[in-house]
């Protein structure tokens, strides 16, 4: 298992398009991937839009992404990079 932490940095948080982009990226990987809110401890399957939305991840929320499977390292790094890129919201 591989995991990493980061903070949601884009203004709209993981809703709408960013959530959709996140799922599209996560489903490319074979590993099982989870995303966890560090303040409440709630976690969700990172490949499910519904579960992701239910976490209500706003800007400033600290999260941990962890994965288990053959491509776990690339999966986690790729998703962390996506969050840190602010989903292209800042120009």
């Amino acid at each position: 298992m591989y995991s990493k932490k980061t903070v949601i940095a884009n203004n709209t948080g993981l809703h709408a398009r960013p959530a959709s982009d996140f799922i599209a990226n996560a489903t490319k990987f074979k590993s099982r991937i989870f995303i966890k809110r560090l303040d409440s401890g709630d976690e969700a399957n990172a490949k499910s839009i519904i579960m992701l939305l239910s976490l209500a991840l706003d800007k400033g929320t600290e999260v941990e992404i962890y994965a288990e499977g053959e491509d776990e390292i690339t999966a986690v790094n790729s998703l962390i990079d996506l969050i840190d890129s602010k989903f292209g919201e800042d120009k």
Partner: peptide
């Protein structure tokens, strides 16, 4: 178009 793109995400939700 965005609404329906979101509907596609929901339709293909892995957990559901």
């Amino acid at each position: 178009a965005k609404i329906f793109s979101a509907h596609l995400d929901i339709l293909f939700d892995t957990v559901m």
